[in-house]
Design a protein around this nucleic acid. Structure first.
Lengths: 148, 148
DNA sequence: CAGAATTAGTAGGCTTGCTTAGTATTGACC
DNA sequence: GGTCAATACTAAGCAAGCCTACTAATTCTG
């Protein structure tokens, strides 16, 4: 039985990504890229390693994404004055503009996905998912947080 | 608030895949490949298109996966006697053996992820996820089923 | 201060997903 | 029976994950 949790979870996650990307294609941004922009909005000047940690992704994955987003003019790499190995990441004006246009698309996607599901059920879902996240990362979910 | 559902969902899905792949690396099989084997076990002789539909994946994605799994000796393509465009897919002996070894790893992964979460909560999670799946695919979740 | 260990990021190469565009075969319709 | 649309699959090319292995800079330790 439990086998199905991973399967269904992966399926829903993939279909949500597809639904978002479909809407955002015209803007030329993918959902993972939107998530990067989202983090950068809250943590201007973060290093690549920090970004990777928040996203729970390997540093190389974050680095490659920043490569593409820099080419697209969405983000900017600046030297870290205190550490010559590191980059500091900043949103460009274009990146900021695009965030404004993506927000409603994200809303639409989650509205579509959660249609007919009550607030309470959604909250319960989120609660369970956060426990799972803790089990997988071995650290409290609040710590790797998105909204501090 | 709802924004976070997609994000957390994607994160949990990715970390579960990582946890499974870590365990299965020694066997040389990834989680998506395990899912293919799983479907084939229940639907011997299915065509690639049918496989893609069950997995909710594009046909080309399924095709490329079968390429690799055929190279690895896990599955076999046989001609469809009634349609020269199509392939019929079968597990090899090796594929079947490997399934036996993967089952416990899948179990471990979901046990780790769901540790401290009650049966009732897990069932509720699954129920919610299936509603979301319906919302995303536009068809009843039982239809694209895994276990008929 | 010198040398070792850690940290920040990159390079190459793989799988899994996608889109768009193509070929080959089948099936439906006049 | 011939044309034409639909179907089954493949090709090329991209994004986003991963792992292993590397360079360069920093920090720790003796």
């Amino acid at each position: 039985m439990e086998r199905r949790v991973g399967t269904v979870l992966a399926q829903v996650a993939r279909l949500m990504r597809r639904a978002f990307d479909e809407r955002a294609r015209e803007i030329g941004v993918t959902r993972p890229q939107w998530q990067v922009l989202s983090v950068l909005l809250r943590h201007e000047g973060i290093k690549q390693g920090g970004l990777a940690e928040i996203l729970e992704v390997e540093p190389i994955t974050a680095g490659r994404m920043i490569d593409r987003m820099q080419d697209a003019g969405l983000v900017e790499r600046r030297d870290d004055p205190a550490d010559r190995r590191a980059w500091r990441l900043y949103l460009t004006g274009r990146g900021r503009e695009i965030m404004d246009r993506l927000q409603p698309l994200a809303r639409e996607t989650s509205d579509q996905t959660l249609s007919g599901i009550s607030e309470a059920e959604t909250a319960a879902l989120l609660g369970t998912l956060e426990k799972m996240l803790e089990n997988l990362t071995g650290r409290p979910a609040g710590a790797n947080s998105w909204d501090d």
